[in-house]
């Protein structure tokens, strides 16, 4: 149990620093940044309480906001993602979720990709809607959501495969 807590704490800090020091500075084509800190929310232990997940996601989002001067947009998006996570898990993994027996290191890659794709798109759409905060710029919102999502999804899946699949 202690092990789980320490792994998640380390993951929290490492992803936060990776995000603000490297990923926020990429600015691919001038505006595309991956938001890899949501991996923390994706990989949060499933058996644990949802309240804890909501609170830690809020804290993580808030810290990202502190570093990037963006008010509360990351906090709002992260909390929403944490809230819809059980629905995403149920629709992507089906029966496995009902039995609380998902192990991200052993599930098949197809379900993992579905799970991360939908989660990322929801997170990014809320993020950019709040950041731009102007319904007349809906095209800009959709454009940013699309391109950043592609970048985030590819990076997240690579990171998850690299760091959690090798301990079989």
């Amino acid at each position: 149990m202690n092990n789980v807590i320490s792994i998640n704490t380390i993951r929290f800090v490492v992803l936060l620093l990776l995000q603000v020091l490297i990923c926020n500075q990429i600015d691919f084509f001038g505006f595309i940044n991956p938001y890899i800190y949501i991996i923390f929310i994706f990989l949060f232990p499933i058996k644990d309480e949802r309240l804890l997940l909501l609170l830690t996601s809020f804290l993580l989002g808030m810290l990202i906001d502190l570093f990037s001067d963006s008010g509360g947009v990351h906090a709002a998006a992260a909390v929403s993602l944490a809230y819809v996570r059980p629905i995403l898990l149920k629709s992507s993994f089906g029966m496995l979720y009902e039995h609380h027996s998902i192990k991200f290191s052993t599930t098949d890659i197809g379900s993992l990709i579905t799970y991360i794709t939908f989660g990322t798109i929801i997170h990014h759409f809320i993020l950019f809607s709040l950041e731009i905060f102007n319904i007349s710029n809906i095209l800009l919102i959709l454009q940013k959501t699309l391109f950043s999502s592609i970048f985030t999804i590819i990076l997240s899946i690579l990171i998850i495969i690299l760091f959690s699949r090798n301990k079989k």
């Binding site: 963006s70 947009v73 809230y83």
Partner: peptide
Amino acid sequence: LFLLLFSIAIALTI
């Protein structure tokens, strides 16, 4: 809790 945290975030955004 979700509603509370989400509204704090929105308030900070605004």
